Computed example of a mutant assay.
Amino acid sequence: MSDAIAAMGRVLGPDVLAAVQDLYRGEQEQLAAGHPVDAADLPYGEHPRHRLDLYRAKGASGPAPVLLWVHGGGFIRGEKCAPDHPYGANVGRWAARAGMLGAVMNYRLAPECGWPAGGEDVGAAVDWLKANAAAHGGDPDRIVAIGTSAGAVHVATHLRLAAGDTGLAGVGLLSGLYGFTPLDDRDTLYYGAPDMYAARMPREAVVASEVPLFVACAEFDPPRFQAETLGLLAARLDTHGQMPRAYIASGHNHFSMGCHIGTADTRLTDEIASFIGAL
């Protein structure tokens, strides 16, 4: 797998995404067949995209930690599940197999909905889980939100919007953007005019937050995402006197960070499970 991913380089695009999905499709579809969704399309708000799916831990002896997964998609696409592939849902299924309540959400997309819609939606999903997780076997006091790419941006933005009352026991940020690098033209669909970019990024909130933090990026992430990760780690060190828990996913690229979760490559999920278990 790693050789095939390395050969794809560090570029983003639909062809690379499709190639990554094909690498893991067989294993992920086999795993999906053994763990269907337990509750689908639960509304956490009024917009049609305000929906989440739940995957329950089997045989749990008590209330389980809750993992809220926030998909990527460059602010303009992405799904919690899809009829033609197992991705997004794979994280909920892995969480359930690891003894957690997996919650996989959709959120509003650009250009219909711009900043800060994604961060608001993460907050609304957290509020829904605080009120309803117990009825599905989850512990509302142990909700961990983990996002990849645009999803990581939205989780980070929730930290900014919620200030000290995040409702979260922990946060995971995988290959996200926090405000340590310049605007990319594609980001204007979500952030609006370029002169608004710096003021709307969650940099200060993520650096200052006291919520336990896990940060990761991929060996073959584009340089911008690697620079964002390094910038955040350095800023956290300056502010808190130590870096947060962090991981560099060797052999992976921007898309495989999420697509491989739940497969035989358990290095990232081992880190995530250990992070959540220590909270």
Rank of each mutant, 00 (worst) to 15 (best):
G72L: 04
A40N: 05
I272H: 01
V16N: 02
T239Y: 14
N106H: 13
L177R: 13
L129V: 05
G179K: 01
G34E: 11
M100L: 13
C259P: 00
A103P: 07
Q21K: 13
C217M: 11
A103M: 12
Y24G: 02
L168Q: 09
A124W: 03
Y190W: 05
H85A: 13
A249I: 00
H260Y: 15
A103G: 10
G179T: 03
R186I: 09
G179M: 07
C217N: 14
L279Y: 08
A249S: 11
L237H: 11
A234G: 00
N132V: 06
A103S: 10
E204P: 07
A64N: 03
P63N: 06
L129R: 07
G92Q: 11
L232A: 00
H85G: 11
E79N: 15
A264H: 14
G59F: 08
D195F: 02
R51W: 07
P14A: 13
G137T: 01
D221Q: 06
Q226S: 12
A131F: 09
L101S: 07
D121I: 09
V37Y: 02
A57Q: 04
L67Y: 11
A273V: 09
K130T: 11
L31W: 10
N132P: 00
L168R: 00
R77A: 15
G164L: 07
G73P: 07
P83N: 03
F225A: 00
G13H: 07
T188A: 12
A235H: 02
I248L: 15
Y178H: 08
L129P: 04
V37D: 05
A216Q: 01
A152Y: 05
D53G: 09
G99Q: 10
G119E: 07
Y44K: 08
I248T: 10
R224K: 15
A218M: 02
V144R: 06
V211C: 12
T148A: 15
D270Y: 01
T188W: 03
V153Q: 14
G45A: 11
A227G: 00
D22L: 14
A98M: 01
C217R: 07
R245M: 12
E271H: 12
R108L: 03
I146L: 14
L23W: 03
V144P: 03
R236C: 06
E204R: 08
E228C: 03
R25D: 04
T181C: 08
G26R: 14
L42P: 03
H35N: 10
H158C: 02
G262Q: 05
Y44E: 04
A64R: 06
E46N: 09
A6R: 14
A135T: 10
C81V: 12
G62Q: 13
L67W: 12
H254V: 13
H85K: 12
A150L: 08
A145I: 06
P202A: 13
E271Q: 15
P182D: 11
L12C: 01
G277S: 10
D165E: 15
F275R: 06
K130Y: 00
V37H: 02
L213H: 04
F275H: 11
A273I: 00
Q242G: 09
R224W: 07
A162D: 09
V207N: 01
S2A: 12
L109Y: 02
G59L: 06
L109Q: 06
H50W: 02
G164N: 14
P212Y: 04
T239M: 09
P202C: 11
M257L: 15
T188E: 15
A33D: 13
H85Q: 14
F180K: 02
L237W: 08
A19W: 01
I276W: 00
G119V: 08
R203S: 09
L101H: 08
R93G: 10
